[in-house]
Structure formats: C-alpha cells, structure tokens
Computed example of a mutant assay.
Amino acid sequence: MARSAVMSTSKLSKIENGRAAVSVVDADRILTAIGVSEAVKAEYMAAARAEATEATAWRLYRRLGYHRKQQQIKAMDDTTTLLRIFQTSLIPGLLQTPEFARAVFARKEIGEEQLSRAVGGRLARQAVLYDPAKELQFVILESVLRWGLVPPAVMVEQLDRIVSVSRLSGVDVRVMPLAGFHADVPGHSFAVRDDRTVTVETVHAELVVTDPRDVDLYVRKFERFSSAALAGDDMRSLLEGIRDEFLRKQETGLERPPGCP
C-alpha cells in the first residue's frame, strides 16, 4: 500500500504503529489507496482536519529527495478536480519548461542525478494539464514573468509555453498587471485544491491549511485577484510583449540581467 499511497514503507509503518502522526495529506493518500467509501473517507478526513494547519520544513524534502516531493504533489493533483494556483514569486511548476525547471532546482545545489530526477518529476506532473476532467486556474503576477532568473533565451521559450498552455480547454491562465490601481496586496503564493486544502510555501517550510474558515480566506483572495487580472487575448498580448523585450535583450547580448553571475 505504501507505493500506492506515495509514501515510504517506513513512514507507513510508523503511522500504523502510532509512532508518527497522520497529516491531512497522509490521511487522504492512505484512504484513497485502500479504496474506502466516500462516506468513510469524509469521516476520517474531518478528524484529520481538526489539526487545521501543518508545516513541513524544506530540509526534510531535501533529505528525502525533491523528486519524491514532486511525486507527492502529483498524487494530490491526480485526486484534485479544481486546482487554483496563485503565484507571486515563481512561474508555476505545471507551466515550467524543462530548462526553466532545471534552473529552479539547480539553485538548490543538488547532484546531477537528483537534479534530473527532480526535473523529470516536475515534468511528469504536467500531464494533468491535458486531463479533461480537471479545471486548472492560474493567477500570476506580471513581476514573476519579468524576473530574470534565467537567460533571456530561456525566458522567451518559457513565455511562449505559457501562451500555448493558456489555450488548453481546461486551463485558465491570468496575469495581474503591474500598471494601474490595486485594491489588495498579493502576499505569498499558494495553491487551493477543491476549496478544501491550501498549500502555502514559505522560506523555511510548506504549510498545509485545512480549516474551512482559513481555506475560505484563500479562496476569496484568489477570486479577488482573478477577477482583476488579465485573461484571454489581453493576457496573451501582455506575455508576448514581455517576450519581445527578452528577445531584444538576447539580440543585444544581455544574456543575464545585471548583477547575476
């Protein structure tokens, strides 16, 4: 069952023997793996959510391997019907090109084998973009699309990728422009799954929020920004304009922004 629940055998053993607490995510995976009825699952999940918020330090994921973290996220995505992602700092993993994903994981200073496995795990998750049973909504700040994390040539390809994915039937990509008056502050990035679980990434840890009252705060924040963001052709026009700026940087030899090694 450990494999189908996407967790190590040792972790499952500790949970079974009462030597490790069961998180909401763990409970969801285990109950899904053993195939309990929806009524039974709802009862156990309600008990697990009583803990409300959980935090897992990034150093633990580093120890386990970032590819395992990608597998865990994929397992959650596979059981999610409506996924809402609000990004204030980085292009969402589901939209990243292989080159961009490699640059992101390379900054974690891991070996080549671990790097390749992490990138492969992230790219494998992107199959969900083509699942007709899924609804994926993204709201991204314009500043994220201008951030010079990678050379201009990579950003050109990355922006083209987002434009292409935005045309998929089950995908809604919106961009919050820098220009204009804004009635709210973006804060940090987060992902909402089926309006029941929120994942928040902080500097030191990943938080999982499950209290319905708190989840609702994130849902409403997402909806406020989504309603104010550019969508459809307006969004694509903005991205194409930013892409052209990176093209000009590439043509003039500015392969990296000033100050970057």
Score class of each variant (00 low, 15 high):
Ala5Glu: 00
Ser8Leu: 14
Lys11Glu: 01
Lys11Cys: 02
Leu12Asn: 11
Ser13Tyr: 10
Glu16Asn: 15
Gly18Phe: 09
Gly18Pro: 13
Ala21Gln: 01
Val22Arg: 01
Val25Pro: 01
Val25Arg: 02
Thr32Lys: 10
Ile34Thr: 15
Glu38Gly: 10
Ala39Gly: 05
Glu43Phe: 13
Glu43Cys: 10
Met45Tyr: 02
Ala46Lys: 10
Ala47Asn: 08
Ala47Leu: 10
Arg49Phe: 01
Thr53Trp: 00
Glu54Val: 00
Ala55Val: 00
Thr56Cys: 00
Tyr66Thr: 07
His67Met: 14
Arg68Trp: 08
Lys69Val: 00
Gln72Gly: 08
Ala75Ile: 00
Met76Tyr: 05
Met76Asn: 04
Met76Lys: 05
Met76His: 06
Asp78Phe: 06
Leu82Cys: 08
Leu83Lys: 06
Leu83Met: 09
Arg84Pro: 02
Thr88His: 12
Thr88Leu: 08
Thr88Ile: 04
Leu94Lys: 03
Thr97Gly: 10
Thr97Ile: 06
Glu99Thr: 10
Ala101Gly: 14
Arg102Trp: 13
Ala103Val: 12
Ala103His: 11
Val104Gln: 00
Val104Met: 05
Arg107Cys: 13
Glu109Thr: 14
Gly111Leu: 15
Glu112Met: 08
Ser116His: 15
Ala127Gly: 05
Ala127Met: 04
Leu129Glu: 04
Tyr130Asn: 11
Asp131Glu: 10
Gln137Ile: 06
Val139Cys: 09
Ile140Tyr: 07
Ile140Phe: 09
Ser143Ala: 06
Val144Glu: 04
Leu145Thr: 03
Arg146Met: 06
Trp147Leu: 09
Leu149Lys: 03
Pro151Ala: 07
Ala153Tyr: 13
Val154Leu: 10
Val156Ser: 07
Glu157Cys: 14
Gln158Pro: 11
Asp160Leu: 05
Asp160Arg: 09
Val165His: 00
Ser166Glu: 03
Arg167Ser: 12
Arg167Glu: 12
Arg167Trp: 15
Leu168Val: 14
Val171Thr: 10
Val173Gly: 04
Val173Phe: 06
Leu178Glu: 13
Gly180Val: 03
Gly187Lys: 15
Phe190Cys: 03
Phe190Pro: 09
Asp195His: 09
Asp195Arg: 09
Glu201Tyr: 04
Glu201Ser: 04
Thr202Met: 11
Glu206Gln: 11
Leu217Cys: 14
Leu217Tyr: 12
Ser227Gln: 14
Leu230Lys: 04
Leu230Asp: 08
Ala231Gly: 13
Gly232Asn: 13
Met235Glu: 07
Met235Gly: 05
Ile242Met: 05
Arg243Trp: 05
Leu247His: 02
Leu254Trp: 08
Pro257Cys: 01
